[in-house]
Amino acid sequence: MLDRLREPWTDRRAGLLLGALACSVLAVIVFMLVFIAIKAWPSFAHNGLSWFSSKGVVDQQLDAMVNSGPNPTSADYQLGAWPLIYATLLTTFFATVFGLIFSLLSAIFIVEFAPEPIRRVIVPVVRLLAAVPSVIYGLIGILVLAPFIGNSVISADQKTSVQFVIPLSGTGLGVAIAVLTVMITPIMIAITVDGLHSIPRAWKEGALALGVNRWRAMWTVTVRAARPAIIAGAVLATARALGEAIMISMVAGSKGFAPNPLDGFTFFFEPIRTLAATVVEDAESINAPAMQASLYAMALVLLVGAFFLSLGSWIAKQPLKKYGTRS
């Protein structure tokens, strides 16, 4: 058997073996999806579409599940997860938008304007930053950023204005978005830089030779042509932001609360908890069947969300292909 593997591989054998490997990955994903869906079913069955709505206080509902014992009734399954979904959407959206702006501008600087010595330093550093474990960002967020905001940025007026709704301590939406942005920007920069580099030099030179300056040539030709790569980078980063759990759990205040945009700037100081953070924090109570079903339901929502994210990026890239090199 082993001797046969030592022989030179035919293309047919290589194709079959690698195909089996690739299919096994697919099978694992499908199995995971089905498993989670089955486990999550009781939670959706008892709540219906109101699972996605805001009913009651989500933290109280989760606490009730822990105490409901091994044979929960339908009332114990009650959950309105909207604050968690809302928090997930808010953090992911803002972090992606800020990250996209930062990363695109930095990538343009690196590719087009940075002097060679700076470029030689900045590119490896960015790649290094992309590999920093997120818990380190979380540590800095909770030890440095949150106390600073809690003590120096949030005014006493802001604290009293919402004191009967939610206490403001520093940890909250704003810190979560800031730390999340810092976390996902390096990988977006790295992918965008690669994307911009892969655009043929001849296109840029063609634009310059027509009397366009480098800044305009960058935007009108290079960035335009690199849009698929930029989207790919953004989606990868968004997926990371969507699933980030530990770091958010550290810096976001860990309250199942839906920040109210009508509160003005205080909005960004209000504590939140995302779906992923909830799964991490409540995983220890998983022995309670109601809690287990609820956590699996949250996981399913995240999984389906990530799937739609990929689908969305694929759809967004379709019109860009028309004038590209791929026909």
């Binding site: 043929p200 001849a202 063609g206 634009a207 027509l210 009397g211 030709v221 004038y323 590209g324 090199t325």
Partner: peptide
């Protein structure tokens, strides 16, 4: 460069 324009060795139309 607007007054002195250039055509290159490899055709380089933009992807538009």
């Amino acid at each position: 460069r607007r007054r002195v324009s250039m055509v290159f060795q490899q055709p380089n139309p933009f992807p538009m």
